[in-house]
């Protein structure tokens, strides 16, 4: 199992990071949808938002590490044959990265919008930035609508992966799950013989 990415497929670190971020992001979204529906007396009424905030802060570390990892790894080449669609797929990946960064930043600012620190799993206190209170009234709204944005974008991204798997029958999804089974292409063979 390869640690690093190659031009053909993802290494296991990149795959693990991708799925951790995916599960955490969708999980945080569903958690928020759920706790917003709870009655005031529900046992999870205060604990669920605290868990959302704690996981969110942990996710910041994962995202930072993932961005660093991205810098030191090649990006596997697109398996699609349409240059325009490949370009759109690449733009989608960057849009998802930017949305994630915006989500964790607004999440932090919303969690500290009272000027009070935010608790991470009851262990670490993350302080508020000076002036955090000035964002009251808009920051929660922004965090909420960015979350709808990323869910929509991630759905398009996911359906595109399923289209590669079931319609194009290529290795796009498989190489993000298991590293892929693609035999060396002519292009790769040329590369290796060079």
């Amino acid at each position: 199992m390869s640690l690093l990415n190659t031009k053909r497929t993802f290494g296991w670190v990149a795959r693990a990071l991708h799925w951790i971020v995916a599960v955490a992001t969708i999980g945080l979204f569903l958690l928020a949808i759920w706790y917003r529906s709870l009655d005031y007396g529900h046992p999870w009424y205060t604990a669920a938002p605290e868990l959302h905030i704690s996981i969110g802060f942990a996710l910041i570390l994962v995202i930072l590490f993932r961005l660093i990892w991205l810098l030191f790894n090649v990006k596997p080449e697109h398996l699609g044959h349409n240059a325009v669609i490949n370009r759109m797929a690449g733009l989608m990946h960057w849009a998802l990265h930017l949305l994630l960064i915006a989500l964790v930043i607004t999440g932090y600012l919303y969690a500290t919008a009272d000027g009070r620190s935010a608790s991470v799993f009851g262990v670490i206190e993350i302080p508020a930035l000076p002036g955090a209170k000035s964002l009251k009234g808009t920051i929660g709204w922004l965090h909420e609508y960015l979350s709808y944005g990323i869910i929509i974008f991630a759905s398009v991204h996911g359906f595109a992966a399923l289209k590669h798997h079931f319609v194009d029958r290529d290795d796009t999804l498989r190489r993000m799950v298991s590293g892929g089974r693609t035999p060396l292409t002519e292009h790769d063979q040329q590369e290796t013989t060079q």
């Binding site: 938002p49 919303y110 919008a113 009272d114 009251k136 009234g137 920051i139 929660g140 709204w141």
Partner: peptide, 10 residues
């Protein structure tokens, strides 16, 4: 509305 807790105010 301002109750000194933005999540509650939202």
């Amino acid at each position: 509305v301002n109750s000194n807790h933005e999540a509650r105010d939202k």
